[in-house]
Amino acid sequence: MADLATPIFSPVSESLYPFLSISLLTVGLLIAAYFFIYEVTTSKLSKSLLHELLTSSVASFFLGFGSLFLLLWTGVYV
């Protein structure tokens, strides 16, 4: 058994956590900022739900993964 045992590593190298969290969060926050600009500048009657859902889902994808790596980087291993 011991001969066959191979150590299990994290699927993403731990040295990449800072880079991944900063880059993913930056992109996520930019898209979120665009979403909020759209929300406040477009009048209530001419908002496009599809447009909003698309931007928000892309933003939440980036923010979600970005915050995961932020947690891991800061030592909160989920």
Binding site: F36, E39, L53, S56, S57, S60, L63, G64, F65, L68
Partner: peptide
Amino acid sequence: VEPLMLVIGFLLFFIACI
């Protein structure tokens, strides 16, 4: 599952804003 929960959390926030 864990990152997807975070993604869903953010998405819920955006949907609340919408």
